[in-house]
Amino acid sequence: MKALSVFPTLLIALIAAVMVNFAAVPEPSGRSPENAARGPAPTLTRPATPVKDPDGEGFIRRWLILEPIGANGLTQSVVQAAVRREYFPKQFTIIPRDGEKVQIEGSDLTWHAVDTSLHNINLYHFAYALSKPTSNVLFWAVTVIDCSRELKDVRLAIGSNAASVWWVNGKEVIGIYGDRQSVIDDGVSKRLTLKKGPNVVRCAVVNGGGATDFCARFLDKDDAPVKSFTVNLG
């Protein structure tokens, strides 16, 4: 039972009727009164090198992530409406610097450069470590991959928990919706070309409740991972 995200529905009725030894189940984000940061996320670190290679399976391990914005709903129409709403200037083109801030609905939200020790970016870790909400949120993330030569006929291949929309060099290439788990190569773009030099990969991830994360890599025409690039957020 996916109690975290759905408790308000059937389970409330089912369990409330018969259970005596269950406490109420608040959203994870609401369970702590702390407002201060809770220490580093287990899988995320601040970049310590100028560039970062993809991992052995081509996953991009360095991203700039904006602290979460409140959002509700995971259906296609709701997610599309959420990501198209303007939260901050140049939200589809900005390449922020680590520590840069934007103001949304009166709150300052900070962009954080992160490296992940895994194939995925654990956004729950990210938000939780910053004492930010993890449920009913929208994350913006962006990275820049630097190609030594043009790469034709590749595809962006991503997984996300939950819904997400993706852009490469400003063009929307993937949208996956619903309350889904992060699976490698869950959403895959049509064939595209990575130009020589910097290419911008951007995403917006919307989560309902529970864990939230994403992973991304490029696949060549044989579905083999593309690894001939570096990530440079310089």
Binding site: K2, S5, V6, T9, L10, L11, G178, D179, R180
Partner: peptide, 12 residues
Amino acid sequence: THGSCCRGTDSG
């Protein structure tokens, strides 16, 4: 089990 429970016919 993957997907969502507890949403009736909308459970994935």
